[in-house]
Protein backbone atom coordinates (compact mmCIF):
# COMPACT_ATOMS: atom_id res chain seq x y z
CA UNK A 1 0.00 0.00 0.00
CA UNK A 2 1.52 3.30 -1.06
CA UNK A 3 0.28 6.81 -0.40
CA UNK A 4 -1.19 7.26 -3.92
CA UNK A 5 -3.22 4.11 -3.57
CA UNK A 6 -4.43 5.08 -0.08
CA UNK A 7 -5.40 8.63 -1.06
CA UNK A 8 -7.01 7.20 -4.21
CA UNK A 9 -9.13 4.81 -2.15
CA UNK A 10 -10.11 7.57 0.26
CA UNK A 11 -11.03 9.80 -2.65
CA UNK A 12 -13.19 6.97 -4.02
CA UNK A 13 -14.84 6.53 -0.64
CA UNK A 14 -15.39 10.27 -0.30
CA UNK A 15 -17.00 10.40 -3.76
CA UNK A 16 -19.61 7.73 -3.15
CA UNK A 17 -20.40 8.94 0.37
CA UNK A 18 -20.73 12.51 -0.92
CA UNK A 19 -23.26 11.45 -3.52
CA UNK A 20 -25.27 9.40 -1.03
CA UNK A 21 -25.20 12.26 1.48
CA UNK A 22 -26.28 14.82 -1.12
CA UNK A 23 -29.26 12.73 -2.20
CA UNK A 24 -30.26 12.03 1.39
CA UNK A 25 -29.82 15.61 2.59
CA UNK A 26 -31.62 17.30 -0.32
CA UNK A 27 -34.20 14.47 -0.52
CA UNK A 28 -33.59 14.60 -4.26
CA UNK A 29 -31.56 12.82 -6.90
CA UNK A 30 -32.11 15.46 -9.58
CA UNK A 31 -29.16 15.62 -11.96
CA UNK A 32 -27.85 12.22 -10.89
CA UNK A 33 -27.72 9.43 -13.46
CA UNK A 34 -29.37 6.33 -12.04
CA UNK A 35 -27.87 4.36 -14.92
CA UNK A 36 -24.31 5.23 -13.94
CA UNK A 37 -25.15 4.21 -10.38
CA UNK A 38 -26.63 0.88 -11.50
CA UNK A 39 -23.48 0.18 -13.48
CA UNK A 40 -21.23 1.09 -10.55
CA UNK A 41 -23.34 -1.24 -8.40
CA UNK A 42 -22.76 -3.97 -10.99
CA UNK A 43 -19.02 -3.12 -10.97
CA UNK A 44 -18.67 -3.59 -7.21
CA UNK A 45 -20.78 -6.73 -7.05
CA UNK A 46 -18.98 -8.51 -9.90
CA UNK A 47 -15.52 -7.41 -8.73
CA UNK A 48 -15.85 -8.14 -5.05
CA UNK A 49 -17.18 -11.69 -5.32
CA UNK A 50 -13.76 -12.65 -3.98
CA UNK A 51 -15.00 -11.43 -0.59
CA UNK A 52 -16.28 -14.99 -0.29
CA UNK A 53 -13.17 -16.75 -1.57
CA UNK A 54 -10.18 -14.67 -0.48
CA UNK A 55 -9.23 -12.75 2.59
CA UNK A 56 -6.63 -10.02 1.99
CA UNK A 57 -6.92 -7.64 4.93
CA UNK A 58 -9.46 -6.02 7.23
CA UNK A 59 -8.97 -2.82 5.22
CA UNK A 60 -9.67 -4.59 1.94
CA UNK A 61 -12.76 -6.42 3.21
CA UNK A 62 -14.19 -3.34 4.93
CA UNK A 63 -13.77 -1.09 1.90
CA UNK A 64 -15.30 -3.66 -0.44
CA UNK A 65 -18.29 -4.11 1.87
CA UNK A 66 -18.76 -0.34 2.14
CA UNK A 67 -18.58 0.17 -1.63
CA UNK A 68 -21.20 -2.51 -2.26
CA UNK A 69 -23.48 -1.26 0.53
CA UNK A 70 -23.25 2.42 -0.48
CA UNK A 71 -23.84 1.57 -4.15
CA UNK A 72 -26.97 -0.42 -3.31
CA UNK A 73 -28.20 2.32 -0.95
CA UNK A 74 -27.68 4.95 -3.68
CA UNK A 75 -29.58 2.89 -6.24
CA UNK A 76 -32.38 2.35 -3.72
CA UNK A 77 -32.68 6.10 -3.05
CA UNK A 78 -32.77 6.93 -6.77
CA UNK A 79 -35.18 4.24 -7.94
CA UNK A 80 -37.39 3.85 -4.87
CA UNK A 81 -37.26 6.36 -2.03
CA UNK A 82 -36.78 9.53 -4.10
CA UNK A 83 -37.99 8.17 -7.42
CA UNK A 84 -40.23 11.22 -7.94
CA UNK A 85 -37.16 13.46 -8.14
CA UNK A 86 -35.28 11.20 -10.56
CA UNK A 87 -34.66 13.02 -13.82
CA UNK A 88 -35.27 10.03 -16.12
CA UNK A 89 -36.03 12.22 -19.15
CA UNK A 90 -32.40 13.32 -19.20
CA UNK A 91 -30.94 9.96 -18.21
CA UNK A 92 -31.34 8.39 -21.62
CA UNK A 93 -28.00 6.68 -22.20
CA UNK A 94 -28.59 3.06 -23.20
CA UNK A 95 -26.81 0.82 -20.69
CA UNK A 96 -26.78 -2.16 -23.04
CA UNK A 97 -24.52 -0.21 -25.39
CA UNK A 98 -21.85 -0.40 -22.70
CA UNK A 99 -22.66 -3.64 -20.88
CA UNK A 100 -22.86 -5.88 -23.96
CA UNK A 101 -19.54 -4.86 -25.60
CA UNK A 102 -17.79 -4.78 -22.23
CA UNK A 103 -19.10 -8.27 -21.44
CA UNK A 104 -17.88 -9.52 -24.83
CA UNK A 105 -14.47 -7.98 -24.31
CA UNK A 106 -14.17 -9.52 -20.83
CA UNK A 107 -14.73 -12.95 -22.40
CA UNK A 108 -12.09 -12.32 -25.06
CA UNK A 109 -9.39 -10.42 -23.16
CA UNK A 110 -8.75 -11.67 -19.63
CA UNK A 111 -5.98 -13.16 -17.52
CA UNK A 112 -7.68 -16.48 -16.97
CA UNK A 113 -10.79 -18.10 -18.43
CA UNK A 114 -12.61 -18.75 -15.16
CA UNK A 115 -15.94 -17.36 -13.99
CA UNK A 116 -14.48 -15.20 -11.20
CA UNK A 117 -11.70 -13.86 -13.37
CA UNK A 118 -14.06 -13.02 -16.25
CA UNK A 119 -16.41 -11.24 -13.85
CA UNK A 120 -13.46 -9.34 -12.36
CA UNK A 121 -12.34 -8.33 -15.87
CA UNK A 122 -15.91 -7.34 -16.76
CA UNK A 123 -16.03 -5.10 -13.69
CA UNK A 124 -12.72 -3.43 -14.56
CA UNK A 125 -13.87 -2.71 -18.14
CA UNK A 126 -17.34 -1.63 -17.04
CA UNK A 127 -15.97 0.73 -14.40
CA UNK A 128 -13.91 2.51 -17.03
CA UNK A 129 -17.07 3.57 -18.89
CA UNK A 130 -19.75 3.51 -16.16
CA UNK A 131 -19.61 7.27 -15.70
CA UNK A 132 -20.63 7.93 -19.34
CA UNK A 133 -24.41 8.12 -18.65
CA UNK A 134 -23.68 10.73 -15.95
CA UNK A 135 -21.45 12.79 -18.26
CA UNK A 136 -24.00 12.38 -21.05
CA UNK A 137 -26.73 13.64 -18.74
CA UNK A 138 -24.67 16.72 -17.85
CA UNK A 139 -24.02 17.41 -21.51
CA UNK A 140 -27.76 17.16 -22.17
CA UNK A 141 -28.84 19.50 -19.40
CA UNK A 142 -25.75 21.70 -19.84
CA UNK A 143 -25.05 21.95 -16.12
CA UNK A 144 -24.34 20.08 -12.93
CA UNK A 145 -24.99 20.93 -9.32
CA UNK A 146 -21.87 21.82 -7.39
CA UNK A 147 -22.00 18.76 -5.13
CA UNK A 148 -22.40 16.54 -8.19
CA UNK A 149 -19.28 18.23 -9.58
CA UNK A 150 -17.39 17.50 -6.36
CA UNK A 151 -18.54 13.89 -6.60
CA UNK A 152 -17.23 13.59 -10.14
CA UNK A 153 -13.97 15.29 -9.24
CA UNK A 154 -13.35 12.93 -6.31
CA UNK A 155 -14.28 9.91 -8.46
CA UNK A 156 -11.99 11.00 -11.30
CA UNK A 157 -9.16 11.77 -8.88
CA UNK A 158 -9.40 8.25 -7.52
CA UNK A 159 -8.56 6.72 -10.88
CA UNK A 160 -5.91 9.31 -11.67
CA UNK A 161 -4.24 8.49 -8.32
CA UNK A 162 -4.45 4.80 -9.12
CA UNK A 163 -2.40 5.45 -12.26
CA UNK A 164 0.33 7.07 -10.16
CA UNK A 165 0.03 4.07 -7.82
CA UNK A 166 0.62 1.72 -10.77
CA UNK A 167 3.67 3.68 -11.90
CA UNK A 168 4.99 3.47 -8.33
CA UNK A 169 4.26 -0.25 -8.08
CA UNK A 170 5.90 -0.92 -11.43
CA UNK A 171 9.12 0.82 -10.37
CA UNK A 172 9.31 -0.32 -6.77
CA UNK A 173 7.57 -3.70 -6.83
CA UNK A 174 7.94 -4.73 -10.47
CA UNK A 175 4.19 -5.16 -10.48
CA UNK A 176 1.81 -4.32 -13.27
CA UNK A 177 -1.53 -5.52 -14.53
CA UNK A 178 -2.12 -4.47 -18.10
CA UNK A 179 -5.92 -4.91 -18.01
CA UNK A 180 -6.28 -2.69 -14.96
CA UNK A 181 -3.82 -0.12 -16.29
CA UNK A 182 -5.36 0.25 -19.76
CA UNK A 183 -8.91 0.39 -18.39
CA UNK A 184 -7.82 2.82 -15.68
CA UNK A 185 -6.24 5.13 -18.24
CA UNK A 186 -9.36 5.03 -20.41
CA UNK A 187 -11.45 5.85 -17.36
CA UNK A 188 -9.22 8.76 -16.38
CA UNK A 189 -9.19 10.18 -19.92
CA UNK A 190 -13.00 10.31 -19.87
CA UNK A 191 -12.75 12.72 -16.93
CA UNK A 192 -10.25 15.10 -18.52
CA UNK A 193 -12.82 17.39 -20.09
CA UNK A 194 -14.71 17.47 -16.82
CA UNK A 195 -11.51 18.15 -14.81
CA UNK A 196 -10.88 21.18 -17.01
CA UNK A 197 -14.36 22.58 -16.37
CA UNK A 198 -14.07 21.79 -12.67
CA UNK A 199 -10.80 23.68 -12.29
CA UNK A 200 -11.86 26.65 -14.42
CA UNK A 201 -15.39 26.99 -13.00
CA UNK A 202 -16.27 25.11 -9.83
CA UNK A 203 -13.01 25.94 -8.04
CA UNK A 204 -13.72 29.59 -8.72
CA UNK A 205 -17.06 29.33 -7.00
CA UNK A 206 -19.16 29.03 -10.11
CA UNK A 207 -21.67 26.35 -10.93
CA UNK A 208 -20.55 23.91 -13.58
CA UNK A 209 -22.25 24.86 -16.81
CA UNK A 210 -21.25 23.93 -20.31
CA UNK A 211 -20.53 26.58 -22.92
CA UNK A 212 -23.58 26.96 -25.17
Amino acid sequence: MNIFRLVGDLSHLLAILLLLWKIWKTRSCAGVSGKSQIMFGLVYITRYLDLFTNFISIYNTTMKAIFIAVAIATIYLIYFKFKATYDSNHDTFRMEFLIVPVGGLAFLVNHDFTALEILWTFSIYLESVAILPQLFMISKTGEAETITSHYLFALGSYRALYIVNWVYRYYFEGFFDLIAIVAGCVQTILYCDFFYLYVTKVMHGKKLSLPA
Partner: peptide
Protein backbone atom coordinates in the same frame (compact mmCIF):
# COMPACT_ATOMS: atom_id res chain seq x y z
CA UNK B 1 0.97 -14.68 -9.34
CA UNK B 2 0.35 -11.40 -11.13
CA UNK B 3 -3.42 -11.85 -10.94
CA UNK B 4 -3.47 -12.54 -7.25
CA UNK B 5 -1.49 -9.40 -6.55
CA UNK B 6 -3.87 -7.04 -8.34
CA UNK B 7 -6.76 -8.34 -6.27
CA UNK B 8 -5.47 -6.45 -3.27
CA UNK B 9 -6.49 -3.28 -5.07
CA UNK B 10 -10.04 -2.02 -4.92
Amino acid sequence: SQNQEVKDEL
